[in-house]
Design a protein around this nucleic acid. Sequence first.
RNA 1: GGCCGGUUCGUCUAUCGGCUAGGACAUCUCCCUUUCACGGAGGAAAGACGGGUUCGAUUCCCGUACCGGCUACCA
Length: 504
Amino acid sequence: MNKKVRVRFAPSPTGGLHIGGMRTVLFNYLFAKHNNGYFILRIEDTDQNRFVPGAEEYIFECLKWCGLEPDESVMHGGEYAPYRQSERKEMYKQYAEQLIKDGKAYYAFDTPQELEEKRKTILNFQYNHASRNEMKNSLTMSDDETKKLLEENVAHVIRIKMPYDETVSFTDMIRGEVHFNTSQSDDKVLLKADGMPTYHLAVVVDDYLMKITHAFRGEEWLPSSPVHILLWQYLFGLENMPHWAHLPLILKPDGKGKLSKRDGDRLGFPVFAMNWTDPKTGELMHGFRERGFLPEAFINFLALLGWNDGTEQEIFSLDELIEKFSIERVHKAGAKFDYEKAKWFNHEWIKRLPVTSFQLQVKQLLQNAGVEINDDEKLKTVIQLIKDRCVLLTDFIQQSSFFFQSPKEIDINAIKPKWNEHKKQFFVELIRTYQLATTWQHEALENSFKEIAAASQIKPGDVLLPLRIMLVGGKFGPHVFNIAEVLGKEETINHIKRTLQLLQ
RNA sequence: GGCCGGUUCGUCUAUCGGCUAGGACAUCUCCCUUUCACGGAGGAAAGACGGGUUCGAUUCCCGUACCGGCUACCA
């Protein structure tokens, strides 16, 4: 029983990866690494109508950004290749035919149009134990008839023959014992007319061939699990079946239902890991990365959405998550996604991560915003100074631009109403003093500021805000004298002079 | 409709029968701060409902209600 743990994440490349999918990746990854096992990424591209160019590359980039690299995949290789189901097409057929031989499946020749007709005329029509005797399939036709149609290459599918009134049970690692009556499920298509397997056949065959030991997927798969269990029983034996765990869904923050791609735009937060542009519609879906999230924070809040380690700890690094994760502690109930809490995680990570770990991203952000950075040491000092007040990486733009270029706009109206000659004289005196300064360091700057204020009988508070506006352009930023220190003597004095002129 | 799953503060959650029901986000008050944050102190805020079982149920069982998922030659 010392089988190496092998788990897989099996997305279909039909679009961007949203947080539900990313959390499934995360839980797979954490479980694999916690157990010293392997994490496999398999591309489930069995629906050729839904193929979206670029989606596959996008998936890999998301995983890379989060640091959740697969051990085996289309990109990483591995001994169970190919890892793309479209390239495994021929493998599935033999298993479908095996099932027919064993009487567990049958050929069905009903056309999509005929089925559609049925569904239109009969409410809740199901292709199942009750109706299959009236349909066009190898169960209702003679062997010769079937053989003839097959030889004539008449379009057909292979369907599983669900047993009548039997109970299928299995133990879900999260939910415990689950039971289903086989009559409830319809006769699912296993092999489509184009020769491609459906999900149902493909998962079972590939999980077997790839020696998957634990299969995690979203709760929406629970109702079709009896089909998969049966397939395991018929094809490979229940004793070889992976342990299942159906993960709770991530729900919309407002109202009802599982979180969908559209909810982001509607509610003003990202639902994708990274920006995703639909190649057909050209529509852009926003991602957490571009919104200014750190991968550490992204992973952290994803992990806590439905899982906790039983203590009150909330901030976990990837390594800690790997160490502490257990699938049994995953919740049964779905969780509403809370963007405010997600931002809090990001803030926490910005505060505790060393500046160097995200300095490059901030630099890029600033440069994209048109702020030229040519002094990395200064940037480091600035980030250190302002990181406590930045929730998202993008907040660094507003909070730090003025350190590198003169503010484009000075909120002069915040000074004007209370401006007078007396205050002006104060600043003239301040300039004179600062010009004579031999050292340039915030305590000294603050001291002389206060001394001048006292000498000119002015309350420091009355001139502190004007000074701030002069240096940063608005009512924000860290302590004024810290700013002045970083800005340097020349810049600080220039800023004061310039604003004094504006106030004339 | 049928089947399956779920149900603790507004939100994420702790509790493996003893609860004055704990924490976090958000919110409110105060302190710190002559900007905004950070930080600190405190407040308000929950066991869907009804039956059992038990000395004792948030915890176990049953029913009801509500929420969600599935019900395609999509995954």
